[in-house]
Computed example of a mutant assay.
Amino acid sequence: MTSTGAVRPGGRTARVREAVRRATLAELAEKGYEGLTVEGVALRSGVHKTTVYRRWGSVEGLAADALDLAGGEPWPVPDTGTIEEDLRELTRLVVTGFADPETGPISTAFISASARNPVVAGALHAFFAARHEQSAPLVTRAVERGELPVGTDAADLVRTAVAPLYYRLFISGEPVDERVADRAAAAALAAARAGVLQEP
């Protein structure tokens, strides 16, 4: 991905980048990654095709930059007062996100693209790393309340909680619902309480 430039917030480059990001997401939602084209994004965003090619280079660059912007946005990390409810809310958030008719196809397209292209795969890795960092307070609060052992790895706890959901969604094709989400959260919590997810 080529550089998109760095300017003051609200500058022309920032506005162009946001317009292209919105257009990229809309194209992904409607057509999937297979149907994503530079021409389609340029037309939808109102940004000249030459500019899109110069700054993003390809559909891989467009997808990667959209993920980069998304990674910097706030994530509604649950704060219910207990780690049990927090994890349950977190796993349910994943389920409802993929079931949403607007956001679900976009998330699916990103994952599909990451399996095919190393540029998008790297961007998706960075996106999840940002999400893990944002979810760290969930574990910090639980340790302070005495609900989890000191040294529990926040990223590993989140991975353990959501991994069964992604397996069903993208590997086995089995149904995913709130019951499955709650079981995944409970299994992750049991592992954490047993000390399995403590940092080395």
Score class of each variant (00 low, 15 high):
Ala64Leu: 11
Asp65Ala: 15
Ala66Val: 07
Ala66Asn: 07
Leu67Tyr: 01
Leu67Thr: 01
Asp68Gly: 11
Asp68Gln: 13
Asp68Tyr: 11
Leu69Thr: 12
Gly71Ile: 03
Glu73Val: 05
Glu73Cys: 04
Glu73Trp: 03
Pro74Asn: 11
Pro74Ile: 09
Pro76Asp: 12
Val77Ile: 15
Val77Met: 10
Val77Tyr: 05
Asp79Arg: 14
Thr80Gln: 10
Thr80Phe: 05
Thr80His: 04
Thr82Val: 06
Thr82Phe: 03
Thr82Lys: 03
Thr82Arg: 06
Glu84Thr: 13
Asp86Thr: 08
Arg88Trp: 01
Arg88Ala: 04
Glu89Met: 12
Glu89Cys: 13
Leu90Trp: 13
Leu90Cys: 03
Arg92Lys: 15
Arg92Trp: 11
Arg92Ala: 05
Leu93Asn: 10
Thr96Gln: 14
Thr96Val: 15
Thr96Ser: 15
Gly97Asn: 15
Gly97Gln: 14
Phe98Ala: 03
Phe98Val: 08
Phe98Asn: 06
Ala99Ile: 02
Ala99Trp: 04
Pro101Met: 09
Glu102Gly: 00
Gly104His: 02
Gly104Ala: 06
Gly104Met: 05
Pro105Val: 05
Ile106Asp: 00
Ile106Cys: 01
Thr108Gln: 12
Ala109Asp: 07
Ala109Asn: 06
Phe110Trp: 14
Ile111Arg: 15
Ile111Met: 13
Ile111Ala: 10
Ser112Met: 02
Ser112Arg: 15
Ser112Asn: 13
Ser114Asn: 08
Ala115Gly: 15
Ala115Val: 03
Ala115Met: 13
Arg116Ser: 12
Asn117Cys: 12
Asn117Gly: 09
Pro118Lys: 08
Val119Cys: 05
Val119Glu: 11
Val119Ser: 12
Val120Pro: 04
Val120Ile: 14
Val120Gln: 04
Ala121Gln: 10
Gly122Ile: 01
Ala123Gln: 07
Ala123Ser: 11
Ala123Arg: 04
Leu124Ser: 01
Leu124Glu: 03
His125Met: 12
Ala126Asp: 15
Phe127His: 14
Ala130Leu: 03
Arg131Thr: 06
Arg131Asp: 00
Arg131His: 11
Glu133Asn: 08
Gln134Thr: 08
Ser135Gln: 07
Ala136Gly: 07
Pro137Gly: 06
Pro137Ala: 08
Val139Asn: 00
Arg141Cys: 05
Arg141Leu: 07
Ala142Gly: 08
Ala142Gln: 04
Val143His: 05
Val143Arg: 04
Glu144Ile: 02
Glu144Ser: 13
Arg145Gly: 04
Arg145Lys: 13
Arg145Asp: 09
Glu147Cys: 07
Glu147Ala: 08
Pro149Tyr: 09
Val150Met: 10
Val150Asn: 10
Gly151Gln: 07
Gly151Leu: 07
Thr152Phe: 00
Asp153Ser: 14
Ala154Lys: 02
Ala154Gly: 10
Ala154Ser: 14
Ala155Gln: 07
Asp156Glu: 15
Asp156Asn: 11
Val158His: 06
Val158Cys: 05
Arg159Met: 10
Thr160Glu: 12
Thr160Tyr: 01
Ala161Gln: 01
Ala161His: 01
Val162Lys: 03
Val162Arg: 03
Val162Trp: 01
Val162Cys: 03
Ala163Phe: 10
Ala163Gly: 09
